Computed example of a mutant assay.
Amino acid sequence: MTRRVFQLRVTLGDVTPPVWRQVLVPAAYTLDRVHRVMQFAMGWQDCHLHSFEIEGAQYGEPDPDGDLPLLDEMDYRLDEVAGPGTRMCYVYDFGAWWEHEVVVEEVLPADPGVRYPMCVAGERACPPEDVGGPEGYAEFITALVDPSHPRHIVMWDWIGRPYDPAQFDPDQVSTLLRRLT
């Protein structure tokens, strides 16, 4: 049987200009591994809860208290729950509610000489962890780029590292994704 890869287009919702990635993911990956691909591809740090919604079903890490009814993401493979054209919603950080639209653009034969998963394209840096969701990110960017903004220095101190919202390197993401194989 020929190995297949899913070409996924991941777009972060409610953020302008758009932050997006195009990744190639093995079709046989379970959804917990797809979650890890999302984390590396987008630049998140996997510090918060997450879930997938695919055709009305919710997948994620089962809630031990049973308050959040989710199908166990470790029990479902990508190729069992999605196909070409499938649209999924991936939510990361239920407090900030980072909603990602994930579209299966194509299902392709895997190239035996290529290591998957890999990032093939994308634009813009991911918002920093714990910035406060889309609204907090918009405020963060406004303060960051305007030296006269009253929170300019506070935001630079808070981030504590160089941050360029326009920066994105798919090769760097692919290097990180190799840790999953």
Rank of each mutant, 00 (worst) to 15 (best):
Q45S: 11
R179H: 09
G122S: 11
C89G: 05
D164R: 11
F94D: 02
A96H: 07
W98A: 01
L70R: 11
A138N: 02
Y137M: 01
G83Y: 00
H48M: 10
E101L: 10
Y92I: 01
L24W: 13
D75Y: 00
L12F: 14
R151L: 14
H48N: 10
S51K: 10
V104A: 10
S148I: 02
D171K: 12
A41E: 11
L78G: 03
P128K: 04
C89N: 09
M118I: 12
M74A: 14
A82P: 01
L176H: 07
L176W: 09
P147Y: 07
W98C: 01
A82I: 02
G113D: 15
I54F: 08
V25I: 13
L68D: 14
E135G: 05
P26T: 07
E53W: 03
G60R: 07
T142K: 14
P112C: 05
A143G: 05
R161M: 14
D72W: 09
P64K: 11
E73K: 02
D169C: 06
V34L: 15
P134R: 01
D171Y: 02
L180R: 09
L71Y: 00
E105K: 11
L24D: 06
R3T: 06
H50P: 06
R77K: 14
Q7F: 00
Y137G: 03
D171G: 12
L24I: 01
M155F: 15
L180F: 12
G43D: 05
G13L: 07
Y90T: 04
H152I: 02
Q45C: 07
A125H: 09
L8R: 13
R179M: 04
P18D: 15
L176M: 13
F40H: 15
D63M: 12
V173W: 00
E99R: 14
I54R: 03
T175A: 14
L31P: 09
Q167N: 10
L108Q: 13
D130L: 04
R124M: 09
D72R: 08
A41N: 07
D65V: 01
P170V: 04
V81P: 01
V104R: 09
E123V: 05
H48C: 09
